[in-house]
Structure formats: structure tokens, C-alpha cells
């Protein structure tokens, strides 16, 4: 592999991405993503000195709306999609504790 993405790299990226992977998946993704990244290295052929980055296709600048209260979504309707809720809140499992499990 030109790029050589290690299983260690994949575990690190999976952690940053908040994705739990099995050992088998780590192996498959290391190979597939390594091949794709190897291909991305094609961009290194180009001399990009002085080229301005282009994050967006338009020339727009940030548009700010007026800071006025308007209609928003109904809380009950929104919470209807939540896996667990206690109106008007979303419910989550405990946050403090051992953590870092991903």
C-alpha cells in the first residue's frame, strides 16, 4: 500500500468519528481506506504554491438574519422523534463516570 494506513490509524479515526468497530471491520477498513488514501496522494503531483483555497462555490459572505423571535418547531413534535425524552428534555444515560469507552 502506497499510503499504508495501519489498523492503529483506523482505531484512532474511528474513535474521533465516534464509531465502534469490530476487529474484523478495523482490518477491512484499513485496507479499503488505505487504497483510497493512496489514490488521494495523486494531488501531491500538483504545485499549489500561491493557489487560494476554495471551500465553497459561491462568493457569498455570512448572511445574518434579524435577531427577531419567529415561529419554530413544536417541541412535542420534535421530541416525538427522540429515542428517549421527558418533555421538554432529551434523555441520555449518565454522563459522568468512567467515560472514554469508545
Amino acid at each position: 500500500m502506497a499510503n499504508g494506513l495501519t489498523e492503529e490509524d483506523v482505531r484512532h479515526v474511528a474513535k474521533l468519528s465516534r464509531l465502534k468497530l469490530s476487529d474484523e471491520e478495523v482490518g477491512v477498513f484499513a485496507e479499503q481506506l488505505g487504497a483510497v488514501l493512496g489514490y488521494m496522494d495523486k494531488l501531491k503531483e500538483l504545485d499549489l504554491e500561491g493557489v487560494e483555497e476554495m471551500a465553497h462555490p459561491t462568493n457569498m459572505v455570512n448572511k445574518l438574519r434579524l435577531d427577531e423571535v419567529g415561529a419554530s418547531l413544536d417541541v412535542e413534535e420534535v421530541l416525538a422523534n427522540a429515542p428517549a425524552s421527558d418533555e421538554p428534555y432529551f434523555k441520555v444515560p449518565k454522563v459522568l463516570g468512567d467515560g472514554g469507552s469508545a
Binding site: K15, S17, R18, L19, K20, L21, V92, P93, K94, V95, G97, D98, G99, G100, S101, A102
Partner: peptide, 14 residues
């Protein structure tokens, strides 16, 4: 199957 909040994210997404 989540043990805590971080695990909830990572396992739900997986």
C-alpha cells in the same frame, strides 16, 4: 446496549 454517553454515541452510530 450503551454503558455511558460516549458509548451511546459510538454504538448507536455503529
Amino acid at each position: 446496549k450503551a454503558r455511558d454517553l460516549v458509548d451511546l454515541y459510538a454504538t448507536s452510530r455503529a
